[in-house]
């Protein structure tokens, strides 16, 4: 990163972004597989019955975040005001 002005930065090259995303997907797949392997291979001490569902944490994390964002988007319809909302007649 020594060039000046017109230089290309790390994520300006689509190739780098693709690499990053592939690496990320690969990690997700590996983690999911590790999560559903039988208990005889990786012994997990479970403190809650929900944790016995295969891939509990992965699914929970994904669903939680999708719900979070979709609900937040709906909240915007009710809660969002212009930036100067409070400044008008304060």
């Amino acid at each position: 990163m020594a060039d000046d002005k017109e230089k290309q930065y790390l994520f300006d090259k689509p190739r780098n972004v693709t690499r990053l995303m592939r690496g990320f997907y690969a990690i997700c797949v590996i983690l999911f597989i590790l999560g559903i392997v039988p208990d005889s291979i990786i012994h997990r001490h479970i403190s809650h019955s929900w944790e016995n569902l295969p891939g509990f944490y992965a699914i929970y994390g994904f669903v939680a975040c999708v719900l979070l964002v979709l609900i937040a988007k709906e909240m915007r319809k009710v809660l969002m005001r212009k930036e100067d909302y409070y400044d008008v007649d304060e």
Binding site: F24, I27, L31, Y57, A58, I59, G61, F62, A64, C65
Partner: peptide
């Protein structure tokens, strides 16, 4: 798992 799949949701 929790964190990576949260990130996956973002993506």
């Amino acid at each position: 798992q929790l964190l990576f799949f949260s990130a996956l949701a973002f993506v």
